[in-house]
């Protein structure tokens, strides 16, 4: 792992193949500590696969990874302890209340009961969940669920947050409160990697953005730099896709 420098999230030559289909093609990624990085791309671009590899859920076919200085291949549990992972579906246990859910995950992450209690009340206040802590998750709205998921993902004060489409399926108000929470996490020093379809959101939230298409990183930079001469990030993205396709020809695709 000598090539890696110990940034918040770092990947070199990250390759993932399912059978003989390439899902992620030799991706290089460096996200500094305390930075919010947005992975943008259409369905099937390889965003989720990349995030799952970084969170230690999938084994890369090839390449090196470092998460907060740790290698998920060598010490997967160590890496998982430092990562807060939010899946695309909220992934809540419907028959548990947010408090019970937090208690369960807190203990899996090695927190003491008192510590869990304290974190739950802190985060519930931040996320506006105080009234909902003892209601079963199956009875919550999708916005409330997403906030409970964020509580779950940040309970153990992770150094790295990996969020798979954190604002998908949310209304404007709910997505704004999620965006505010992500910004607070960054301000508190967390490294955040989020994936999204919403380019405007990426532009607002992210320090840097990567355009992913067909498993390849087509372009990378600050939102302003990427937009360049284009009027919006969306136009820049479409142009990059076109350029990329011309250069590489049609490649194998997987979600």
């Amino acid at each position: 792992m000598s090539a890696l420098t110990g940034a918040g999230i770092e990947a070199r030559g990250l390759l993932k193949m399912f059978e003989d289909v390439v899902a992620v093609a030799e991706l290089d990624l460096t996200i500094d500590r305390g930075q919010v990085y947005g992975l943008i791309g259409p369905n099937g671009a390889g965003k989720t696969t990349t995030q799952r590899m970084l969170a230690g859920l999938l084994q890369p076919t090839a390449g090196e990874i470092s998460i907060a200085g740790q290698d998920p291949l060598r010490s997967p549990l160590e890496v998982k302890r430092r990562v807060g992972f939010l899946t695309a579906s909220t992934g809540l246990y419907g028959r548990l209340t947010p408090r019970e859910l937090a208690d369960f995950f807190g203990r899996l992450y090695g927190l003491q009961r008192a510590e869990i209690r304290q974190r739950v009340s802190e985060l519930a206040e931040e996320l506006g969940l105080e009234e909902l802590l003892d209601r079963r998750c199956e009875r919550l709205s999708s916005g409330q669920r997403q906030r409970v998921s964020l509580l779950r993902a940040t309970l153990h004060r992770p150094a790295v947050l990996i969020l798979d489409e954190p604002t998908a399926r949310l209304d404007v108000l709910a997505s704004r409160s999620v965006a505010r929470f992500i910004a607070e996490q960054r301000n508190a020093g967390a490294t955040v990697l989020l994936s999204t379809h919403y380019l405007s959101e990426a532009e607002l939230l992210c320090d840097r953005v990567g355009l992913l298409h067909c498993g390849r990183l087509l372009a990378e930079g600050t939102p302003a730099a990427l937009r360049g001469e284009h009027s919006t990030l969306e136009a820049a993205f479409l142009a990059a896709v076109e350029r990329g396709e011309r250069a590489a020809g049609p490649g194998p695709v997987v979600s």
Binding site: R52, V83, G110
Partner: peptide, 9 residues
């Protein structure tokens, strides 16, 4: 919920 669970250490 499985993915969330598998992400835990």
């Amino acid at each position: 919920t499985l993915e969330t669970l598998l992400a835990a250490p």
